[in-house]
């Protein structure tokens, strides 16, 4: 029983790290009908930025000289998330705008290539970039009770994910800009016809999605306690899987999909002998099955192919 509870907790944590990048995929797909394959790398680049701020550049140390530790932590993470927001907007300009309205294969390949470029640039230019790094612990480490998994760090990871999703929900459904994002994703032409500045809204969408990705990268690095330059490839792929399983374009879908994929992975690892090696295989098989038999995902709406 103890084991199951701690595994459930573990799966929820993993789901949290997947959800934010999954939301990124859904957000951009909703707004532009495009899958941006480099999101995982963007998120990990954000984690590297946060790590640089707190170690190499010493921003965190000098901040915590003046401010209490949690606040300087929040500031550092915020700067990192702003960095990813900028980075993903740059990606939009560099590898999405040139292919607007063309065959989707072009933007698909260009965003994959952009992911490689980000990854390799980190590997080449971050100090010791190709080696694994221990991620600086900005979250408090103390345990609550005697379960190893029930630590403040884990609770805060779940809480941050929850707050981010709530904020996004509020933004998308309650603000004019959020409603404009929805309007664009549902009917681009009509959105232009009511006078929505399409281009501005798209850039805002990318800024917001990028910010969430930065937080997601930070949570992932904190959860695994380590950071590698090429983590982004798998992280992004899992994020896309999560978005597809939940229903591409649906924010709640990303949460549900994240939970499903995370539970599959954690439980295959924990309860199948020799399952560690096959946890990713199981997750990918689930995605393939979903695409084959329920391509609209758990919460997505069925779309009829247009003739």
């Amino acid at each position: 029983m103890e084991l199951i509870i701690s595994q459930i907790l573990n799966a929820v944590m993993l789901a949290c790290t997947y959800t934010l990048v999954g939301i990124g995929f859904s957000l951009f797909f909703g707004a532009m009908d495009i899958v941006v394959f480099c999101l995982g790398d963007v998120a990990i680049a954000g984690a590297f930025a946060i790590m640089a701020l707190s170690t190499v550049m010493g921003v965190y140390a000098s901040l915590s000289g003046i401010l209490p530790a949690p606040i300087s932590g929040i500031i550092v993470v915020f700067i990192g998330a702003c960095f990813t927001a900028g980075l993903v907007t740059l990606m939009y300009r560099a590898v999405i705008v040139p292919f607007e309205g063309k065959n989707i294969n072009a933007s698909l390949l260009s965003t994959i290539a952009a992911g490689i470029v980000i990854r390799e640039l980190i590997g080449l230019f971050y100090p010791e970039g190709r080696n694994p790094h221990a991620f600086p612990q900005l979250l408090p480490a103390g345990l609550i009770g005697d379960n190893v998994l029930l630590s403040w760090r884990n609770i805060i990871i779940i809480a941050i994910t929850f707050i981010m999703v709530m904020l996004l929900y509020w933004f998308v459904n309650r603000t004019k800009t959020g409603l404009s994002i929805q309007a664009i994703s549902q009917n681009k032409e009509a959105a232009i016809m009511v006078g929505i500045n399409w281009h501005r809204i798209i850039v805002i969408t990318f800024l917001i999605g990028g910010f969430l990705l930065g937080i997601g990268g930070f949570l992932t690095a904190s959860y695994f306690n380590s950071l590698r330059f090429d983590m982004g490839a798998m992280y992004g792929l899992k994020g896309f899987c999560v978005a597809v399983v939940g229903g591409l374009g649906s924010i709640y879908g990303a949460i549900v999909g994240g939970l499903l994929i995370a539970f599959v992975e954690v439980f295959v690892t924990a309860f199948i002998p020799g399952g560690t090696a096959y946890s990713s295989v199981a997750a990918f098989l689930i995605v393939v099955l979903f695409i084959l038999f329920k391509p609209e995902g758990i919460l997505g709406e069925k779309t009829v192919e247009k003739v």
Binding site: C241, L248, V287, V288, I291
Partner: peptide, 12 residues
């Protein structure tokens, strides 16, 4: 599956 979905399947 076509497009993005197929790409995900083949990557997987």
């Amino acid at each position: 599956a076509r497009g993005y979905y197929l790409s995900l399947v083949t990557i997987a």
